[in-house]
Design a protein around this nucleic acid. Sequence first.
DNA 1: ATTTTATGTCAGCCATATTGACTTATTTCC
DNA 2: GGAAATAAGTCAATATGGCTGACATAAAAT
Lengths: 164, 164
Amino acid sequence: MADIKSQANPLFLTEDEIRQGIELLFYAYRDFTSDPDEILAAYGYGRAHHRVLHFVNRSPGMTVTQLLAILRITKQSLARVLGALIEQGLVRQDRGARDRRQRLLYLTAEGEALERRVSAPQRDRVARAYREAGAEAVAGYRKVLAGLIDERDREGVLKAIERR
Amino acid sequence: MADIKSQANPLFLTEDEIRQGIELLFYAYRDFTSDPDEILAAYGYGRAHHRVLHFVNRSPGMTVTQLLAILRITKQSLARVLGALIEQGLVRQDRGARDRRQRLLYLTAEGEALERRVSAPQRDRVARAYREAGAEAVAGYRKVLAGLIDERDREGVLKAIERR
DNA sequence: ATTTTATGTCAGCCATATTGACTTATTTCC
DNA sequence: GGAAATAAGTCAATATGGCTGACATAAAAT
């Protein structure tokens, strides 16, 4: 039916097809992160702050350990970023009720406002790409990206993403 | 036919669907870059070196200006990385024949060998994800990622990626 | 009671990026 | 032919976001 060469054939993947898939991911990620980066720079924050705002907003009450596992950075690295956000009243910490060692993380109203402002163009970008590509393409996008995640924690990540 | 809620409906995108698309990209990119990072660390190189090796390998004879446009970094940032690769015999520079101001970039045999070694697990990861997702999903993946690229240079990027 | 876990903190280091200023060689344009 | 623009390189200073190692405290688990 379709031109064989132009189709991604699952039984015969050329090195070139793979390379294209790699480069597309590079370019998409490059531009996908550029919007928040620009906005945050004006506030004196960076990409690392955005990631914290995003995931705390997404899972209010998450622990520091959970956040570290998601970001895959050391607690010393997180400390500087998280400390700044707490100090400036964008993130709040509560002791865990069940486990009082834990510090549960929440965005303050101000933190939520900044998160929304910073992620707005990023959401718009994804929404536009989704609309233009169509529902079927979006399903494929999700399927392939999920397959790129390390297998050992793929299930957990997908569960976390889809939870609600 | 299918459950409406589980489908990405192009006419009614919920904020949650968008957020999931954002997070999937974050996780996929995080793991996608982890393989080369680990290998390169053993050689005393970093992610920036890998990007140079990748794109010079992909487009032998490209100019410094072209590389800067792709990476979206300053020439001072590139200088350190590119300088190290040249110094250690992984990248070679030739004067442009048409424009002698240009320095055309090529990988040496050694550079090609390292590029292959470093990108191998990354290629394997993408190949596996492609095979498991199937041809239709791959087409969707490509469509959405292309839509995430800045519109002003989307056409140029796609042309560059698909050229061969 | 001991060990493990969750979190925090100090200190030092490295990689990657930035801005700004300036140089050299070459091409392009008038 | 001369001025302006372009391609590339370089020096200096700075910021950001990571890292390792060492150590401390509180609370939970064994």
